[in-house]
Design a protein around this nucleic acid. Structure first.
Lengths: 334, 334
DNA sequence: CTGAAAGCGCTTACAG
DNA sequence: CTGAAAGCGCTTACAG
């Protein structure tokens, strides 16, 4: 039951300055700071100073060069766990993500986050599924990440990215304005907002912004309504909306999903889109292009948001990163 | 520039057996094995033995109880990084994922993987984006995960889950058979397989299985064709398919995306679905229900696949986990 | 300009 | 039945 020699630590040591094993892969012991120190004839401390470019030390160019070459030759790579234990946290940033991975926002956000983190020598790892305090704790205890980010962070609450707050420049508010602006530009004055059945905090924020934007544009107070996931329920919901608010000629979707469900329901009801009712989505997905009429939507490039989130998580300066403005992808539905 | 007292290690120590700080959160130093040892009057080793239920030790019930109570009272949680450094790898399993997160397969797979890992005290972290050797190396060096899993693993190659191989029982082959079986059951004999424009290894496997299944069912050799992402290109591709293979009366999608694109193209061409050509998807997404005619698809519950992957990654016995059979979700398109 | 030493928090042979 | 000690691989004051 108790096996001797478990496989790890197979080559228990040898240490010898020979180090000829090429250091690479193989089944060999990993190359450590000790090996580099031995190979270059200095102490571990010195190696560490050189490799980390410690600004508080002054190492002679000769030594520096010797160490760097040895590290390179041996294929030395610092052991993250050891470093993390010593530094107090690992060079990992955890992103918590629930659903809503379909749109362009999340894809570009993750791309930016990942890219920026890589630049600063950190790695992004994602946690899927619902966030529970328990799961959070587990992640914290197991890897002690440098930071834990909640997807969308500031963007989703509307608190962000520009000094005035509210995301009126490049954030959620601005994108909401874009969405309603398109509708207003086509002459619609009475709008409804299609919301998902899951009651999220984000839905509240969207509703708030939608109201604010509508007021600014001089439109009637928008009508929020929930579009359930199943086709019959969605159809019933849209029918009820039409009955209660006959003046509504356009529906803005909380996202492309809700917009698509609305579109389908309208078709079921024999309502012409965009003739009788126009529909616009939010956060362009590929599926929007596949329905008839194809869904008009707001495309959001969140790469900059991701980069900003990365810098903030690392405690770095996050200025000078200008988000790409959102834009309306005009297809047929609005 | 060099600040003294960086915040971490704020409370440098105190050690005192008092340990009255409640151990919990606060800005206090974390509770360590030392604290538990001090509080229960035994050595660190003993605490470790008790808390890990080391089968090679025999600890007196009294001591055991004392240690457990102290650990509980102090809210002790082992520090994952330290443990990982000592054990050789962290209790993390990394899942590499590219695209294709839309369908039910990935959602259920991740759920199973995550759940099973949690049972065995490990945590699942996901890496998004394309897998590069470089990125792989980085992850390895930074956290030394217990295992790295590639999404879908054995399933996607068709090597898996049942002894004969090929996944003819609960795997990819079986699901392919389900898809074609539905079409054959409706009288179709000449099929086309709609493939994505990105050339993936998985596409090859699907094509191979599709051919094998068709042969088994006595159908004509299936015609593979690529459906590009843009609507005009997709339409052109479908038109070309129809011209070259007029006998084809049904299209099986590589996934729901390709099926949906085909459906849209057919409608653009004025072809009646399913009257003239039937279309069936694969790996049911929510969007399939939103088009007209609604997309028939194959729904795959991969939770068991995920659990199996987890057990294998941990080197545990993976028998006795029966995958739920796939099933055809019959809607209108086929 | 460089090295010896301590220590991050844990596990595990090895002695009693 | 339990404890003292070594060591996982790194970083960083502290002495020279």
């Amino acid at each position: 039951m108790l096996e001797l020699g478990t496989g790890r630590r197979a080559t228990v040591n040898g240490d010898g300055g020979g180090g000829a094993t090429d250091g690479r892969k193989g089944t060999r012991r990993r190359t450590t700071l000790n090996d580099v120190a031995a190979a270059s004839g200095v102490s571990r401390a010195t190696v560490s100073f050189v490799l980390n470019d410690d600004p508080n030390q002054t190492i002679s160019p000769a030594t520096r060069e010797r160490v760097q070459r040895a590290a390179r030759d041996l294929g030395y790579v610092p052991h993250g766990l050891a470093r993390a234990l010593r530094e107090g946290s690992s060079r990992i940033v955890v992103l918590n993500i629930g659903h809503g991975l379909e749109g362009n926002y999340s894809r570009s956000y993750i791309r930016g986050l990942d890219g920026e983190l890589a630049v600063h020598d950190h790695v992004l790892l994602v946690r899927h599924g619902h966030r529970t305090p328990q799961a959070d704790g587990q992640v914290r205890d197991v890897i002690t990440p440098r930071a834990v980010i909640t997807f969308g962070g500031a963007y989703l609450t509307g608190r962000e990215l520009d000094d005035q707050g509210g995301g009126w420049k490049d954030g959620l508010a601005a994108h909401t304005a874009l969405q309603l602006g398109h509708l207003a530009g086509r002459g619609h004055t009475h709008l409804a907002l299609a919301l998902p059945d899951a009651h999220t905090p984000l839905a509240e924020v969207r509703l708030r912004f939608t109201r604010e934007v509508a007021a600014t544009l001089g439109l009637a107070e928008p009508v929020p309504f929930v579009v359930p996931r199943t086709r019959p329920d969605a159809t019933a919901a849209v029918r009820a909306l039409r009955a209660a608010h006959p003046a509504v000629t356009a529906v803005a979707g909380y996202d492309d999903d809700t917009a698509l469900r609305t579109l389908t329901a309208l078709r079921n009801l024999g309502v012409d889109v965009p003739g009788e009712v126009a529909v616009i989505g939010f956060d362009d997905t590929e599926y929007g292009a596949l329905v008839t009429p194809a869904l008009t939507s707001v495309r959001i490039d969140a790469e900059a948001h991701g980069r900003i989130a990365a810098r903030r998580a690392l405690g770095l300066d996050d200025t000078g990163l200008a988000p790409t403005p959102g834009r309306v992808i005009v297809r047929a539905s609005a």
